[in-house]
């Protein structure tokens, strides 16, 4: 039964890792602009295509 103690410690350690990841995400500004990334991924990357065709 004492395995439960170990398991709890491990699960809390894992959870703390995620908490630190969250802290890092906030501090590095990932929550600052929640709008533009969502539309940015929809833009066609025309410029690169044109460049590619010019080379070939």
């Amino acid at each position: 039964m004492s395995i439960i103690l170990l398991l709890i410690l491990i699960s809390i350690t894992v959870a703390i890792v995620f908490l630190l990841a969250f802290r890092w995400a906030v501090k590095s500004g990932q929550y600052d602009d929640t709008y533009s990334p969502s539309v940015r991924m929809l833009f066609d990357d025309k410029k690169k295509k044109n460049d590619g065709s010019a080379v070939s």
Partner: peptide, 27 residues
């Protein structure tokens, strides 16, 4: 709006000397 983001992030097509541009919509 999203058109603004698109245009401003494609500034390099208006002038070849602009290497890249990035919008922060909220700010």
């Amino acid at each position: 709006c999203s058109s603004c983001i698109w245009l401003l992030e494609n500034l390099s097509r208006l002038s070849p000397d602009i290497l890249d541009s990035k919008v922060d919509f909220v700010k």
